[in-house]
Write a protein that binds this DNA or RNA. Sequence first.
DNA 1: TTAGTGATATCC
DNA 2: GATATCACTAAA
Length: 173
Amino acid sequence: MGIILPTEFYRRDALEVAPELVGKIIVRTLGNGSELRERIAEVEVYRGTEDLGCHASKGRTPRTELLFGESGIMYVYLCYGMHWLMNVITGEKEQPQGILFRAGTVHDGPAKLTKYLHIDGSFNAQPLCGNPAVRIEDDGFRPAVRTAPRVGIDYAGEYWKNVKWRYIAEDSV
DNA sequence: TTAGTGATATCC
DNA sequence: GATATCACTAAA
């Protein structure tokens, strides 16, 4: 039970949306009608063409085109040939921003999360609002959130590597 | 610490 | 067409 987050929730700056996204619940409805639920425990912000950790820093390509587009759209891509990573686009159009779902309270790790939720490349470019297969709900729980540097982007340079755009729930249910 | 894996971008 | 690079995970 909970309020499904509307498109407007995502149409704000990623740095504003990310801390609020922590504690929300990803609800995945499978083909057989069963529901999988996972509370978001950790997210990371990738924002702007100048952010060397963000895919959009390489410019506009068929792959990154999504980041420049509508908010509330999922950006799902394959990493290291075997892991699907799930993001949601935020901000206004032409602002390349995305938020990576890095961990849930049960499943720790971005690829484990998508594996559990049965999220793969077929979800890329699909909306997260009004989607019968997957949605994010707010059940009113507000965890304390702390920040930390992002992980896995050693190539991004000293500044962008150390920016505290990782948001982590202090406690969970 | 390292293997495994394939899409993407960037070079010919 | 060929190569280098990767927002990771599991096993050792």
